[in-house]
Design a protein around this nucleic acid. Structure first.
Ligand SMILES: [Zn+2]
Ligand SMILES: [Zn+2]
Ligand SMILES: [Zn+2]
Ligand SMILES: [Zn+2]
Lengths: 141, 141
DNA sequence: TGTAATTCCTCTAGTGACTAGAGGTTCAAG
DNA sequence: CTTGAACCTCTAGTCACTAGAGGAATTACA
């Protein structure tokens, strides 16, 4: 049996986060001591490690919830796991391509100024002026 | 003079967001009509476009604020604009490299399952097990 | 001038995924 | 049995907005 602090140390998930997951229903309410403190078993440990790894992979909690509900499922239901993986991958690729075009734009902006700063700074100007940009950009995360 | 709706149309910034920027001090409080409605001039329009472009480039509002305070500055103070640009660029590159390693990992996970789903799904399993992963990952945004 | 449609006002609360802190209780070691 | 660490609940704060309620002002048209 693990106290919440021990569980935290084993999983690298911070204590308030563990309680937050419990509130959200991602972790079942654990047993308590006579003094009302939480005690976890290995099942809870595994479940929390699962959540943590999904989060590290960038999945939102709603998807983590979906995957957790698939534990013990079989047959076609398991295709939902594939869907989640592919959706996340597509999202990731989209984000990467947007971030790369932002990188190009910011590189240009960074180099724009000669550093003399007599009256103006070309970097400052470029930050405000989209006309100098190569293409559109919507950052979104 | 623009009403808030007109300003919104000219800048593609949503009305509640304009009011939010005013609350945050990024936009000065505009004049009001006798009936208490906001009226903006071209200076406000330009300032809002500046903010919007910075946001599109991914700058947090604190940096936008810093850049706005540099308008009209000269000399060494303008180096702060360069610092902001380079910090943002470094942050961007860091994010891209982390997202790319995530992409590799998710690609592997996606391909892990043969789709038979007799009893288990290898995708679902891979989501929970970091031992199969090539390296560490901390997603963070 | 009347009236109806549109736009505007303030205020509160919600998003996602936590994090920080206050004020108090329980546990474990010596 | 005492001390100090770890635990409890609850509230509020983070970032950058977004949505909605309930009401007032403006604009367009007849
Ligand atoms: Zn410069
Ligand atoms: Zn641009
Ligand atoms: Zn599968
Ligand atoms: Zn992993």
């Amino acid at each position: 049996m693990y106290s919440i602090g021990n569980l935290s140390r084993h999983t690298q998930v911070k204590i308030p986060t563990i309680r937050f997951y419990e509130d959200k229903g991602l972790l079942p309410r654990p047993d308590r001591t006579a003094g009302n403190q939480r005690r976890y078993d290995d099942t809870a440990l595994k479940r929390l490690l699962f959540i943590r790894h999904c989060r590290d992979l960038g999945l939102p909690l709603t998807d983590v919830e979906g995957l957790l509900s698939l534990e013990g499922a079989s047959g076609g239901d398991l295709n939902q796991a594939h869907e989640i993986a592919e959706r996340q991958l597509a999202d990731l690729r989209d984000r990467i391509s947007r971030l790369r075009s932002l990188e190009a734009e910011l590189t240009r902006i960074s180099k724009a100024c000669d550093g003399k700063h007599d009256h103006v700074c070309a970097v400052l100007h470029a930050f405000g002026d989209h006309n100098e940009c190569a293409g559109p950009h919507a950052h979104s995360k």
